[in-house]
Design a protein around this nucleic acid. Sequence first.
RNA 1: UGGGGUAUAGCCAAGUUGGUAAGGCAGCGGGUUUUGAUCCCGCCAUUCGUAGGUUCGAGUCCUGCUACCCCAGCCA
Length: 555
Amino acid sequence: MAETEHRPTNFIRQIIDKDLAAGQHESIRTRFPPEPNGFLHIGHAKSICLNFGIAEDYQGSCNLRFDDTNPAKEDITFVNSIKEDVHWLGFEWAGEARYSSNYFDQLHGFANELIDKGLAYVDFSAQETMREMRGTLTEPGKNSPYRDTDVATNKAEFAKMTAGEYPEGHCSLRAKIDMTSPFMCMRDPVIYRVKHAHHHQTGDKWCVYPMYDFTHCISDALEGITHSLCTLEFQDNRRLYDWVIENISIDCTPRQYEFSRLNLEYTVLSKRRLIQLVEENYVSGWDDPRMPTIAGLRRRGYTPGSVREFCKRIGVTKMDNMVEMSMLEACIREDLNVNAPRAMAVLNPIKLVIENFPEGETETLTAPNHPNDVSMGTRSVSFSREVWIEAEDFRESANKKFKRLVLDKEVRLRNAYVVKAERVEKDADGNVTTVFCSYDAGTLGKDPADGRKVKGVIHWVDATTAQEAEFRLYDRLFNVPNPAAQEDFVDAINPDSLTVCKGWVEAGLQNSSPACGAWQFERTGYFCLDPDSQPDLPVFNRTVGLRDTWAKIGD
RNA sequence: UGGGGUAUAGCCAAGUUGGUAAGGCAGCGGGUUUUGAUCCCGCCAUUCGUAGGUUCGAGUCCUGCUACCCCAGCCA
């Protein structure tokens, strides 16, 4: 799609501009560092666009690094999905994908260096005790009795930890910093813990694993990252990040900068909650079209360009934010409006019988694939005595605001003739099932010869050739703007977030596969084919509806 | 007075040697239209959390308040 032209400007790019002007770097290197413990979501897309976008614009590079220091929560299926999603968004990482676990040997060496310098010690305190001695937000912590263990003993104990001689939770390696620091993360943080777990990359080689704060800064330094971008909740951690870099022998000083994470109305973007939605079957999976995951958006019909454009429009700042869903929807509509070929589909059909059209005959009409773009060509659409129309496009009586088919009134069938409703047939419940009408044969491609004005236009599908189809219509997953603020967010799940209906589409539609992956079903919205489709029953997901001022007016 | 952050329209967000409030989304008018779509035109902050101060002049500088977010995992 045509993304907005100018480079984004934000405080991080301004910092980079200054650093470059000051000659601090030869080139810029960033990294996108997901933990492979879930699928990527739109919030990650913001980070991806930021990191890879900066690398592109500054002719630098961006690494993909899996922050895999907690084997208990991680899995190879997540690393695969993450690679796929980053590629889908249109980005290419520098070289091979990296893993924090690539650096376990070096990390272990740096841990020993800290021990040698008297800056780390093995603590055998119970976790409970450790927590109590850490103090509180307003009270300083107390030193552990193990804090002054001599270097030789610490070396030996860390070696025993590493050798698997201690069970999980029995001890940990702590950095010796300051138990009275106002930064909780500086009160002798644990940097290595015992974990007898199989790791998806390193197998059973290790039974001690480094903690995030110790790993991330070193990994950045080892990769020569110049600007390490993360979200706001790591602002305090920056002090520890810098402390580690300053206290080990490494000749690279990456700098961490924090930006605010994305919050989107009517959905949740925390890994914990998304995992719960999947595991407790509130949705069909990580790629459920209602999910804010990249996989979900993809299946829903969002294009990579529309997601990138969204990330550009929301910007990058340090302000807490809650972005309206309309911002995202505007991006996909803007893309699909110019790129999606038009077609006709009837989602809630009733029959329209054109009584003065010869029985058994079929006429082939020509319809443009895009009203504003002749280069998209035309297609043939069959027309016969019986067609399907939308139930909501007919009323027995209505005021002038209703610009559709009304008994004794005329309306234009899109790309076809003007018809006039004559009478109806109803079922036992009184619902109209068939409308009988007459058509004006002289109105194909032109207005009525006598100058009559016909305001309304409705879409239709020829009943003799129509392809039956299933339509999945999505609504917001939650009933409240900020479900995360709820006592229990699942209570706010919208029970009507998915509506399935069966109707008709133009014959052969599912074989036309447009480049953008989507069609606009005129007057109803943008749709894409779902993988659940069968040859005899295509399934269409409604990505987003058209802007609908009529719906706002109501009636 | 634990510490770290952030406050510009309904939402996102420009604004950086102080010079008289960009843009987008949403909304509201009007025009075009065989999609109540698109497209086009117009409107939408005398005011920047708040109270003072400095200044010819303050969203930008100073001081005091207030609100909200983050931190007490051997998670990231």
